[in-house]
Design a protein around this nucleic acid. Structure first.
Lengths: 336, 336
DNA sequence: CCGTTGCCTGACAACGTTGTCAATCGGGTT
DNA sequence: AACCCGATTGACAACGTTGTCAGGCAACGG
């Protein structure tokens, strides 16, 4: 910038004014400065600007895994909203490791991100309190934070599984199994709750042997299927609590050449091409990402105090995103 | 940092020394400083450090679409390598729009990224020349840059389609169709070349009516299928030039209840669950991302001059990543 | 003619950090 | 006793930008 000023024969400050499009700069000088800028290939240093102004034009996005379709779609939605605010996105994968989550979050904070969107991996997030007090807004997505209060964007997990079970009930099933993720996982618990509620509303007793809560690996899923299909009155339908479980179940069913009514939670890319098509309770990761980003930027921009939606320090908000049942065949198989 | 220094009763510089783990600091003082840091919740400002040191600990990753599985896997691989170097990744989606690509790339440069990994959308990249001359290394992935010379990481596209065609030939096919992306796209051209070469090696005449080059939307794919399956000697096998085309073809075949031998280029998540399983020429996006990132960090770190692999200003390198044929059924259907 | 106003410009400090250099101190060397 | 050495510490400038403030100038009203 010093060079540009010298080349254009003006002061540093005038170059700064031109770069920032401030009013009250003589048109001749402005042109001269712009020419020098082009000639020298000058590009303002966002870091230095951030240092002076206190804003980096940067947000951090902390996911379980950038490569997971659910999160990558969410990520893209965040990016789009950030773009509207002239902000770039740091993305990082926690790999479900609380230590790594923390390490990444603090690394983002060292980069002085203007805000943080976090899919919690660990159970404790009090390590973020100092940062939040220092003025970095944080929005949690998909799962609530462990031990602090903050804005959240969640899926209507309970309503989703309720809808899935209702769908199976409507097709005549009474023995409906559920295979969900480990009970420590927030979403797993919520989804199980929806399953129970739906059965209860239908006046059907909850039976333990129809429910499995385990990590979604092939082995435990196969074992869960064994349990479901064994015994005198086996399950005729199954609700899968997450997409990895759904995939494992599909593989296992294909291997056994077995079939039963199936509804998955969370959509799969090629669900319509399977035989039969996969019926799912679809989440809307793009809506979640967009909602989280909007919430975050409201906090960053900081509306007038008192305006609940805009006040940077207002009470925390929770946004719940609904689910959509997509019937493609597998969920409409009647009981034998 | 000033506050920490005051609290610990030392100078700014001593705090800096402790933060950076420099030698020659009295153990007592070091402890005192660390205590003050913890107490005040001090976190060093990476922007200011970058300003002084000339390194931001940041790289930019410019993709077509963060949400696309191919790129999101690539992205994760880049993140892992960056992590080893204590570097965070800015990710951005160009949406195949050259203007947006440029805008994002320059925004990254304003943030003073230490390097740039780019999947080119546009045909011209000379706009990056000033930045590269200013010392920002750039590595291109998946496609070569338009009009500049730089490091690249590419898939062996030609070898991949050759392998796919060979596979179909080995299963007895002689009328093998090819539906690829528009000819402007680099990878589409390379893949078509592999198709031609494989046919040539087998002594089979290339026939125009078996080849379509068009954007991978459902309509043009359906039209292409029409052409392939019409006429006196229709195609008995088909090689799809990219995964979106593959999906369109699968949908269209399902709709028509038709079937033919099919090999896709680029793997699909649930390819093994389809009936029949989808045979593909799989790319390795993780390997591409890792290779690109390693190349980039070699340039950033800047090995000894003369060391081709490490010299920051050495000659450009091109790394080619091989493909893998995964037979799952659809490519092993014999001709009627 | 003079004070006022509005426009335009530049000098300077400050943002938070680190590299450079000088200063101090205890101890060993000649 | 004079000297040198290494270890330890701090003062200060610099990185590239912008906010603050003051100064200069022309037009304007009185």
């Amino acid at each position: 910038m010093k060079d540009v000023a010298a080349a254009a024969g003006v002061s540093l400050k005038t170059v700064s004014r031109v770069v920032n499009g401030e009013a009250n700069v003589n048109e001749t000088l402005r042109t001269a400065v712009l020419e020098s800028i082009a000639e020298l290939g000058f590009r303002p240093n966002a870091g230095a600007r951030g240092l002076r102004q206190g804003r980096s034009g940067t947000v951090g996005l902390l996911l379980e895994d950038v490569a997971d379709p659910f999160y990558s779609i969410l990520s893209r939605a965040v990016e789009e909203v950030a773009r509207e605010h002239g902000t770039m996105v740091f993305a990082g994968s926690s790999a479900e490791d609380p230590a790594r989550e923390r390490e990444l979050a603090l690394a983002f904070c060292e980069r002085r991100v203007d805000g943080l969107i976090v899919v919690p991996a660990g159970a404790s997030h009090s390590y973020l309190l100092p940062e939040m007090r220092a003025g970095i807004p944080v929005v949690f997505v998909d799962r609530p934070p462990g031990d602090i209060e903050a804005d959240m964007v969640l899926t209507d997990n309970t309503g989703g599984t309720r809808r899935g079970v209702d769908h199976l009930l409507a097709h005549g099933h009474r023995r409906i199994g559920f295979i969900g993720d480990a009970p420590e996982i927030y979403t797993a618990g919520e989804r199980l709750r929806g399953y129970r509620e739906a059965l209860e509303s239908a006046g059907i007793d909850f039976s333990d042997e129809l429910v499995t809560q385990a990590p979604p690996n092939p082995e435990s899923t196969a074992a869960a299927l064994d349990r479901l299909l064994a015994g005198p009155s086996p399950a005729t339908a199954l609700l899968c609590g997450n997409s990895r479980t759904t995939v494992s179940v599909l593989r296992e069913l294909a291997r056994r050449e077995a079939s039963l009514a199936l509804v998955g939670f969370d959509d799969l890319e090629l669900g319509d091409l399977l035989q039969p098509g996969l019926t799912v309770v679809a989440q809307d990761p793009a809506a979640m990402g967009a909602a989280a980003a909007r919430l975050l930027f409201q906090r960053i921009t900081g509306g007038p105090p008192g305006d609940a939606a805009g006040d940077a320090s207002g009470p925390t908000q929770t946004i719940t995103i609904g689910t959509r049942l997509i019937a493609r065949g597998s969920g409409e198989i009647p009981p034998p």
